[in-house]
Design a protein around this nucleic acid. Structure first.
Length: 859
RNA sequence: GCGAGGGUAGCCAAGCUAGGUUAAGGCGGCAGACUCAAGAUCUGCUGGUGUAGGCCAUCGCCGGUUCAAAUCCGGCCCCUCGCACCA
């Protein structure tokens, strides 16, 4: 009631944000000699942000504000990840006039004249950078150092990335080797990913490696494509599509017969492929060929299920273990018998049995795929090669598979062909294929020394949650070489060693926190782009060479002061990509003392049912509406308190609404407290002890950024003990003044706006945001325990009244029976000897030979 | 397949690393106070059972260790996420 008559949350937010930003309290200043560098993994620019992003940003701000109040010089910079596809993707959709995107922009209040401009990716970056700052970060009260804003397509940043790649090259961490990448015959390289920027279909396709087993047919080779090369021992025949179009091609010195589609694809995957002539599938039917390794002659039959669009269009038949083959054999009316080569529990002839069990009758049955999956999984998991498999007999399938594959390739019996797991269609309508890039550039993350040093360094880092600290070394081991450049229309820095190729966006976002040191000077114009060459960066980041001018010296000093990063905070999607490369590039390039000190991973805010909120698809509560509806402080408290940072939470309007109410209650309580005008009473010592206990808990929790625990103390436990104090007749004006003051300070990192408002209300000067965080005074535990005892006794009496259904005139309190006191004496004795623990106590008590249950009854 | 995380009451969610007072707190629900009424707010209750604070049940399932297990150990079931040129 109090609050609503006072002021709206929105007005309070506006008032304090204006004052903070005018006073520039966010700016990093070197004052106290101890510093704290925190930043969040900067957002990719792909559209409006949603309530999920704000979770991580809020955590970062709460931590930054807390550290500031502990007396650290805090640097909390932020920027925009403009490189890569997202901005391009949005621009292309605007250009195409994509209805969803246009209405999405309009719904979020994008003016029509801006929408027109957004067909240009650079305008997308420009527009959204501004939105992020003005509409989200500032509106959330984030004390980001706004003098250091930067994006990854600015000229200065590009110079920085060029320098980084020069360094990587010097360290021999840039290598070239063949790579297989998605490619459109019309448009060139395309990205196959869930955003489906370049493609219209097949965003979730994976690249599979088919083994091509070379069956011989006179002078020709029939490359049978399979994912299960170990089943060669069970081959009974070959399949081709009788209606399909095939071709003879020359691959090196060999003549292959494959589908015409495959001929085209293989020209992009092998060098030296030459088309000779078309033939029909039917012309192959009835001929014989010889299987490699086992030298067995088998006949070529026609089967409808063979798809000439997939791999080579030539399939070897293993009817005992492949449901498709089994059904096709039955259809073919031949007398071919399945050859079982895998031992597996519960089956004799697996393909036959599963087909019969699932009631599959013909080659076009929709359950065939499922049957294949089941058999594949079971055999891979628990199958063993049987006596038909020569020297591989007795091997587990999952071991044999790779051994056999590698041996085949070594002996020239087989090759590898890459193929999508499903059809991928380019925006232009053409089918996307996989093309070999013979000399792709990689960053060599597999480097032994780099991996070793990185893993060792992780041991010294502060990583939250601790589970991730255990996981990271494994991730670093697993992390292989990363293709770091690509050709195509996306934003980024041109690769210095290959004209026309762009550095991809993971690789250009590894050392970037260091650039925040410089961006301030770029932004205020005191350093020019032309100055920012390798000499400059070598001096600033490595301390090599001599400064050209005073500004260089100044920046170097800043770098020495602020670096390394203390906390890099980012969502869980960064666990296996961004964070590893963030560490490894620092380890590779920077001096050891500048390697990152900590990582904080936050989980997501999901829609109901755990669906990921997606920027592009929108769907979640938009930020501007949400802040208006609930208030920023309520949302900040929701993030901090609704759950541990390390689990996904479902966005829940009602819950956020509850946090808003909670803040109103707290404000009301605050008003009640400051209006009290009483003197001392016996309960005073209790509130003092209880309050200090909470402050101590908050500080302990914040040592490991336990935001939830800390906010639980501040917003739930403290109000509850204050209520109890009032109930017990506490009204000490002087005492409450000091407690309330501390309480406001304790709130400030979490709900800064309302805290400032309260701070002003009690007549304090300056920003509470710049005050020192309260410290716990000595806690009188005796008083705490005494009050606890009283509380329990009252509860007990109530309980008894309820059970006995009586309304007593007098209440007699009896104390515990003698044996209990005896035990307390024993405990006290043990405590004196410093031997007090439950085990010792129980051992001593046993010596008394009392049956506690009986004793209880007899007293 | 490889790697990771998780299953706690009607719902959300702590507790688990270091076993022990009683499984926090919130929401929802019920009752009461205030109010013409509703809402908001405040107070109490909220697993079962019991006319003396007891007893019984319960932290995905089964077993083990222990005086004592949500917590430690083993096995099983189920769910979620990441896996690279998307960020």
């Amino acid at each position: 009631m109090f609050f609503s008559s006072l002021m709206e949350f929105g007005e309070i937010e506006h008032k304090w944000q204006k004052r903070w930003f005018e006073a520039g309290i966010y700016e990093a200043k070197k004052e106290n000699g101890k510093k704290f560098f925190i930043h969040f993994a900067y957002p990719g620019i792909s559209g409006y942000l949603h309530v999920g992003h704000m979770r991580g940003f809020t955590y970062a701000d709460v931590i930054a504000r807390y550290k500031r109040m502990l007396g650290y010089d805090v640097i909390f910079p932020a920027g925009f990840h403009a490189t890569g596809l997202p901005a391009v993707s949005l621009a292309k959709k605007v250009e195409r006039g994509d209805k969803n995107v246009l209405s999405y922009l309009r719904n979020n209040g994008c003016p029509e004249e801006i929408i027109k401009k957004l067909a240009d990716p650079k305008e997308v970056v420009k527009y959204f950078s501004k939105i992020y700052v003005e509409e989200y970060w500032k509106k959330f009260g984030l004390l980001i150092d706004y003098t250091r804003l930067m994006d990854t397509i600015s000229p200065g940043y590009k110079k920085f990335i060029e320098w980084q790649f020069h360094k990587l090259n010097e360290k021999k961490l840039l290598i070239q080797k063949p790579h297989f990448a998605p490619y459109c015959p019309n448009c060139g390289p395309v990205a196959v990913d869930k955003s489906e920027t370049d493609i219209s279909q097949g965003g979730d396709a994976e690249i599979l490696e088919f083994v091509l087993l070379k069956f011989k047919m006179n002078e020709y080779i029939l490359p049978a494509a399979t994912l299960r090369p170990e089943t060669i021992f069970g081959v009974t025949n070959m399949w081709v599509n009788g209606d399909g179009e095939y071709a003879i091609i020359k691959v090196g010195e060999e003549k292959w017969i494959v589908s015409q589609k495959a001929a085209f694809k293989l020209q992009h995957q092998f060098e030296d492929v030459e088309f000779i002539k078309k033939i029909s599938g039917s012309s192959l039917v009835g001929k014989n060929c010889i299987a490699p390794l086992i030298n067995k002659e088998v006949s070529i039959l026609a089967a409808k299920f063979v798809d000439t669009d997939v791999a080579t269009g030539i399939v070897m038949s293993v009817p005992a273990h492949a449901p498709y083959d089994y059904i096709a054999i039955k259809d073919s009316k031949t007398n071919i018998e399945p050859i079982v080569i895998i031992k597996i529990k519960g089956y004799k002839i697996p393909a036959k049995e599963i087909v019969e069990k699932m009631g599959i009758k013909n080659q076009m049955h929709n359950k065939l795929e499922e049957a294949t999956q089941i058999i594949y999984k079971e055999e891979f998991h628990s199958g063993i090669m049987n006596e038909n498999c020569g020297k591989y007999s007795g091997m587990k399938i999952n071991e044999a598979k790779d051994i056999i594959k590698n041996e085949f390739i070594e002996k020239g019996f087989a090759d590898i062909m890459r193929e999508f797991s499903k059809k991928v269609i380019c925006r232009c309508g053409a089918e996307v294929i996989i093309k070999k890039i013979p000399d792709q550039w990689f960053i060599k993350y597999s480097d032994d020394e780099l991996t070793k040093k990185s893993k060792e360094h992780v041991r010294d880092m502060n990583i939250y949650p601790s589970e991730y600290k255990e996981e990271l070394p494994k991730v670093l081991d697993w992390f292989g070489d990363r293709a770091c450049i690509r050709k195509g229309s996306w934003l980024g820095t041109e690769f210095p060693f290959k004209k026309g190729w762009t550095i991809e966006p993971i690789s250009d976002s590894t050392l970037y926190p260091a650039y925040y040191i410089i961006s301030k000077y770029v932004n205020d114009g005191s350093i020019g782009i032309e100055e920012m060459n390798d000499e400059f960066f070598d001096y600033i980041f490595l301390g090599n060479g001599k400064p050209r001018n005073e500004t260089w010296e100044k920046i170097r000093k800043d770098f020495e002061y602020w670096y390394p990063v203390d906390i890099n905070l980012g969502g869980k999607e960064h666990k296996t990509v961004h964070f590893p490369v963030f560490i490894m590039n620092h380890v590779a390039i920077m001096e050891k003392k500048y390697w990152p000190k900590g990582i904080f991973v936050n989980w997501w805010v999901t829609q109901q049912k755990g669906e990921k909120i997606s920027k592009s698809k929108g769907g979640a509560e938009p930020i501007p509406g949400a802040t208006k509806k609930y208030g920023v402080d309520a949302m900040r408290l929701y993030y901090a308190h609704a759950s541990s940072p390390f689990v996904d939470v479902e966005w829940n309007d009602d819950l956020v609404e509850q946090y808003k109410k909670r803040l109103i209650k707290i404000y009301d309580l605050f008003e009640t407290l400051i209006n009290l005008d009483g003197g001392e009473s016996s309960i005073d010592s209790w509130i003092l002890a209880a309050f200090n206990k909470e402050i101590e808990d908050v500080r302990n929790a914040m040592k490991y950024y336990g935001l939830r625990k800390a906010s639980n103390s501040i917003y739930f436990n403290i109000p509850s003990i204050l209520q109890w104090y009032l109930k017990r007749g506490g009204e000490n004006k002087k005492l409450l003044e000091s407690i309330v003051k501390k309480w406001i300070k304790a709130m400030t990192p979490f709900t800064p706006h309302i805290a400032e408002e309260m701070w002003e209300k009690i007549g304090s000067k300056g920003f509470v945001s710049l005050q020192k965080y309260p410290e716990a005074e000595e806690i009188n535990y005796e008083v705490l325990i005494g009050e606890e005892l009283l509380k329990k006794t009252i509860e007990d009496i109530e309980e008894i009244k309820k059970v006995a259904k009586i309304e007593p005139k007098n209440i007699y309190i009896y104390v515990a029976p003698k044996w209990k006191w005896d035990i307390i004496d024993i405990a006290a004795k043990l405590k004196k000897e410093k031997q007090l623990n439950m085990k010792n106590l129980m051992m001593e008590v046993k010596k008394l030979n009392i049956d506690m249950k009986v004793c209880n009854a007899s007293y």
